[in-house]
Computed example of a mutant assay.
Amino acid sequence: MGRKLAVGTVVFGGITLLGLPLGLLWWLIAPRPEATVTSRGLAYYPLSQTWFAVDGHYSLMMLVAGLAVGYVCYLVQQRVSHRHRLDLRLPTLLGVAAGTAAGSLVAWGVGVGLDLRAADDALLLAGPGDVVRTGLALRAHSALLLWPFSAVLQYGLFEALTLWQAEPDDGAEESARTGAAAGSGGRPGRD
């Protein structure tokens, strides 16, 4: 039980830490939307395509990260389980699910946090009517679920495929038994 808990914890921690470089990558490649400064703050209307591009960059990164993490974790789990003769499927899957959820939040926080100071400074220096670049913001919060969803789906598909390939074909076994019985004259008990 201790080894399984350790495996789940390592998977969780390792994947959560992947949120740091993913957040940095999002911060580097995502475009920055512009907003007009008004006397009440920022006006984001009319919405530009840039707002959707920010969410799109984050979403695409999370989907790709999920597919990669699900695949790599499944392969590593298979090797470690085979080498140590332990069933590590459930702790690994739980670590993947929890780690990707936490990592998604970390990536979001890093991307938004790196832009926060610059956006605030630009807003302080601007006057009403000025157009300023805003910081990163994730408007589609459902994108936070894309990394866990794609990772668990990828992991589960590989597990299902492995289980399906490992199942013996009942029809082949039955035909082998009837073929052996027919070869012995239909009397299976005779030597």
Rank of each mutant, 00 (worst) to 15 (best):
Y45T: 15
L93E: 07
E34Y: 00
L17N: 11
V152F: 02
A122M: 10
L124W: 11
P168E: 07
G113E: 12
R139M: 13
T134E: 09
V80W: 00
L24P: 05
A166I: 14
L28W: 15
G19C: 01
G41L: 09
L60H: 11
S104P: 04
A172W: 07
W108R: 09
A107P: 03
G109E: 10
A137N: 14
L161M: 12
G171I: 14
V69E: 03
V37K: 02
A181V: 15
Y58F: 15
G109R: 13
V64C: 10
A181Q: 14
W27Q: 15
P21G: 00
P128A: 15
L146F: 09
L153N: 06
V80E: 04
Y58C: 04
A35C: 01
H57E: 12
W26L: 04
L42G: 01
D130Q: 04
V7S: 05
T100Y: 07
S59A: 15
L67Y: 08
L146P: 05
D87K: 09
L94S: 03
R85L: 09
Q49N: 11
A101P: 01
Q49H: 13
D130P: 05
Q78M: 07
L20K: 06
G103D: 04
Q154F: 08
L28M: 07
M61K: 10
A30V: 06
G183S: 12
I15W: 05
W108I: 02
V110C: 06
R89N: 12
R89W: 10
A122S: 08
P128I: 15
G13E: 03
G186L: 07
A107M: 10
L125M: 14
D170R: 10
G111R: 01
L20W: 13
W26H: 10
T36M: 04
Q49F: 12
P148M: 02
V80D: 04
V37M: 13
R79M: 02
V72A: 05
